[in-house]
Write a protein that binds this DNA or RNA. Structure first.
Lengths: 134, 134
DNA sequence: CGGTATCCTTACGGATACTG
DNA sequence: CAGTATCCGTAAGGATACCG
């Protein structure tokens, strides 16, 4: 697949983007906000325990639990249980998760770099709307 | 910010990742599945009309309309209205949208490349669960 | 500590019908 | 063609309480 834009390429609008549905499928699994943030956090700080992630991300216990389970099921993170008292569970990126780091951190960087630009664009847009209303 | 993982870095678990909330904020705007797919489609095929995008992505009219409006508001895409009969509206990436292309296509590529790996991981996980159930 | 279970509210998102 | 408006079912996600 070539995601890059080619000047001469015209969309055959009789057909639908064959890859979009597949990309959609994957994104619907590991592309949600919490999954992305968990991976970013594990990328940044390495192995982390349940409550560390929880505090770190400001995520509810319920959502973290669900997100971690899905990520483990999808093979992106590993869960290591230490049967001590009190118990200790550590989460880390698997090799597949490590591969996910590059695109996900790229996304994170872009988000941080362009937060202001987006806010500015919003202000302009909203102001123009306000203008038109009168 | 350094999203890259550094071996010695320990998460100060008294504090929460300051950037995570900001990344979260951005992702909650332009990180949803439809937004990502619209950007991917515009990246790939360039300028497109409303119905082309609709057929292309297999998205409902309502969601496309909402998604496009938000992306325009956030400054990622431009909307050009041609008052012909019938009317013609063209959507394209803005410079800010163009910058979004790199991380988003990286994500798209990864998604396509690892769809199978994820499916395989799932099968293993589910099989192990089945095993444990007995 | 690291979860599950339950409840409840909001947001997502499709289907359909209508408009300039 | 390119939307908007309405309805309605489902899923996301927080709050709380409880368990091993």
């Amino acid at each position: 697949m070539t995601l890059g834009h080619k000047k001469g390429t015209t969309m055959p609008d009789t057909d639908r983007c064959p890859d979009c549905s597949r990309i959609n499928e994957v994104l619907s699994r590991v592309g949600d906000r919490w999954s992305v943030l968990v991976v970013i956090s594990l990328s940044r700080y390495g192995v982390q325990r349940f409550n560390a992630l929880k505090k770190n991300l400001g995520i509810s216990q319920r959502m973290l639990s669900l997100t971690l389970k899905q990520l483990e099921r999808d093979g992106l993170i590993s869960r290591t249980y230490h049967p001590t008292i009190p118990p200790k569970v550590e989460y880390a990126l698997t090799p597949l998760g490590e591969e996910f780091r590059a695109p996900v951190t790229a996304l994170g960087h872009w988000a941080l770099d362009n937060l202001r630009a987006i806010d500015a664009a919003r202000d302009v847009y909203d102001a123009a709307l306000e203008e038109a209303r009168e």
